[in-house]
């Protein structure tokens, strides 16, 4: 198992966000997580990334604690609406370069830029990019690490329909070329990539549960 949640409960400020969630993700699987706002979709992703610790239960990634540097060096993470600080003086290439820090493996940045159709705009300042171009840049940052596990938090939220289509098509292309395990959180089921193998549908009541769709 690449990711394994065993009876995971997470309480925050006395509020139970997740209650006894169990699921496992096998190598090469694309898991989509859906559910209404506030149900804990992003929390699941942050637990898998080692950014949160469960109050009860156990989360393991590659059989280890997800907060360990060895595990983190194999993860590519795309948070929701990252890098919205527009005064930051960085170019597309600078952002992709950041992904190499702390990575166990890496891919040539030029190759990743080419793959996501960003090569022509690699020297453009981030502040000048459209929403779709930004999101592809952050995906490129995650892919530059040549990750074994890719975590995507609402990757298409806020994008125009055209940009959304472009982003999902690029993601599909690269997943067809390179097998990796993916967990993606979606706001709408319609946004889900066609490559999704399984869906984890979180509901507020009863407890979150996993459903296989294929």
């Amino acid at each position: 198992m690449v990711v394994d949640f065993q009876s995971v409960t997470l309480a925050y400020n006395g509020h139970i966000v997740l209650d006894g969630l169990s699921f496992a993700v096998e190598s090469g699987t694309f898991l989509g997580i859906v559910g209404p706002n506030g149900v804990g979709k992003t929390t699941v992703l942050r637990l898998a990334a080692g950014l949160l610790r469960p109050t009860r239960g156990r989360v393991s990634v590659f059989g280890q604690d997800p907060a360990s540097p060895r595990v983190r060096s194999r993860i590519g993470y795309l948070p929701q609406l990252p890098g919205t600080n527009d005064i930051f003086p960085v170019t597309v290439r600078d952002v992709v370069d950041m992904g190499l820090l702390g990575a166990a493996k890496s891919r040539p940045v030029d190759e990743v830029l080419q793959e996501l159709d960003l090569r022509d705009i690699q020297d453009a300042p981030l502040a000048a990019l459209s929403g779709g171009q930004r999101q592809l840049t952050f995906l490129a940052r995650a892919l530059a690490r040549d990750p074994d596990l890719l975590l995507l938090d609402e990757p298409t939220t806020g994008l125009s329909p055209m940009a959304k289509e472009h982003f999902l098509a690029r993601l599909k292309e690269l997943l067809e070329r390179r097998r990796m395990t993916v967990i993606a959180v979606y706001h709408d089921v319609e946004d889900m990539n066609p490559l999704t193998d399984r869906i984890l549908r979180l509901t507020s009541r009863p407890s979150p549960r996993l459903r296989g769709v294929r």
Partner: peptide, 19 residues
Amino acid sequence: FKPMLYISFDPESAEAGGL
């Protein structure tokens, strides 16, 4: 310098990336 730049830009991704 570069790790500082990354944590200033996107601390959550930097932490998830092992910094």
